[in-house]
Amino acid sequence: MIIAVASGKGGTGKTTIATSLALSLALNGSLPILFLDCDVEAPNAHIFLKPELAKKNSVDILIPSVLESKCTLCARCSEVCQFNAIAVLGKKVVVFPQLCHGCGSCMLVCPEHAIEELANNIGVIECGLTAEGILFVRGMLNEGEPMPVPIIRRLKKLISPQKNQIIIIDTSPGASCPVVATVQDADFLILVTEPTPFGLHDLRAAVEISRAMQIPAGVVINRENGDSLELEGYCHHENLPVLMRVPYARKIAEGIARGQPLINIISDYQNQFISLFNQIVAALQLKNE
């Protein structure tokens, strides 16, 4: 089962919820847990899960390299490129690696076979075990690289259809390509939000993604301060179950700032996360019937 934790708005507590859900399930039972930190531009789940990172793999994309001796400047390569990553400028063919998505179209259309592909490193994937036995994997995009999706796709390939394995995915904020690539194939989406105008605005965008991709979703309201009327009304109207509420409390903020998982700050939360998981299981059973 794949559960992705997303939010729309940044800083609502995705990682707080994702890491404590993984820890609660790991401490509770014998099901194998795989945790993927797909927020490759700013991965931070390791702060709470404290894995022993043992393996590191480089992530490369293939970018074109033009053999000038064979090139006739016909410009088919630049015409086919949807990202303007290759241009024929006067008597030169120029490649823009940071615009290239590595699709290989330019190489395929080149009538002179003048294009080769070279590996261009854009980031790393690291993995290791946590003390609780969670298999932890994170991707990290190199600083200054603009394209997170190739790393996210590589991370997602590590998911094997192992029976009973629970996969928890931490998603990047926003509602664009990286989020769509991350939540693709998820069985359920936990949408973490907060009772602010921004929280609600961006929740709507995240809900639109879940609807368009036909992934069932539920909401966690974080930093609840008694001012959630509009947010609760929206969830009710959209038939979105509110799976859990976390209060706006100094004690929690202090613990998170020290890198403590929510369930270590307030121990009662372990049961709440198990109950959250059971609600997801029940929702999915209902959907499959």
Binding site: Q82, F83, N84, A85, A87, L89, G90, L99
Partner: peptide, 18 residues
């Protein structure tokens, strides 16, 4: 023409100029 290009608008405009 490249004003709404999702990526590489500068490259495409440069191509036009060249």
């Amino acid at each position: 023409e490249s004003i709404n290009s999702p990526s590489g608008a500068g490259v495409k405009t440069a191509q036009f100029v060249v």
